[in-house]
Design a protein around this nucleic acid. Structure first.
Lengths: 128, 128
DNA sequence: TTGACTCGACTACAAATGTACGCCTATAGT
DNA sequence: ACTATAGGCGTACATTTGTAGTCGAGTCAA
């Protein structure tokens, strides 16, 4: 089986909304768009259709309305997308991305704590 | 001024090579392609031309050869690309991406140490 | 000086992407 | 029943992306 074709930006945006809602009709997705994101209803329809074609979403009929739900797990899409970006931007090396994030994006002290704990847990696992 | 148009994957791949080489002719870029990446010389030419058009690379003539060099700093491109991905995948929230990376990608104990140190430095800065 | 090469410029072109229109039918209100 | 709506479906279409071919001018070797 050919690997799933990748998601475009617009498609990803829409897919994310479906993930959040778990289950959504075109209209629901449309209405969930952030204010200011000004695209046509039918455009959303098209993205959802493509998402289904590409195998990322599942659609079932509720009466004559299509209700979309995730098919591929978000986790998977995230892994693929991030992986691709790491490859392209850092030649596959994750650490530089981490460094970039820590340096360039603002973290609250709270976030930093959480990260520290994550790292600790990792190390724990390793030593077990 | 309109914001620079984004880079496509193939373009990013090529741009990265130029960043590495600092300075490169089409042929040098072509030859620096990883084994197995089988695209035509003229294709590379096209990507470089587009990169120049989009304002990411600077080209100067060395005799009749074009030599490309970075114009926009890699740092900037990385920031934009990563930022966009964080928006798309995590609604702009960086922490989940960090978590994802820590959980899903393998880090060596050494990497973990480096990350810890990064975090420490951050906190130091904050408390100063 | 005649090939054999190499580049740069221009052109080409299919696929993917971003975005929307139009038509038909079911549905709800009157 | 009659009309104004809303949704589904198919279609459209410009732009961007991935990829390459052609042609003409310079360059090097014989």
């Amino acid at each position: 089986m050919p690997p799933r074709p990748g998601l475009s930006k617009a498609e990803l945006e829409i897919a994310r909304i479906v993930w959040e809602l778990k289950n959504a009709s075109v209209r629901q997705v449309f209405e969930a768009l952030p204010a200011g994101r000004d695209i046509d209803f039918t455009t959303v329809q098209t993205y959802l259709r493509r998402l289904e074609e590409k195998g990322y979403l599942h659609a079932k009929l509720d009466g004559r309305n299509r209700v979309y739900s995730p098919k591929v797990r978000p986790q998977t899409v995230i892994r693929e997308t991030v992986g691709e970006m790491v490859d392209l931007l850092f030649g596959g090396d994750t650490l530089p991305l981490m460094k970039h994030l820590v340096e360039e994006r603002r973290f609250s002290p709270d976030d930093i704590d959480q990260l520290r704990q994550l790292l600790d847990r990792l190390e724990g696992g390793r030593n077990e």
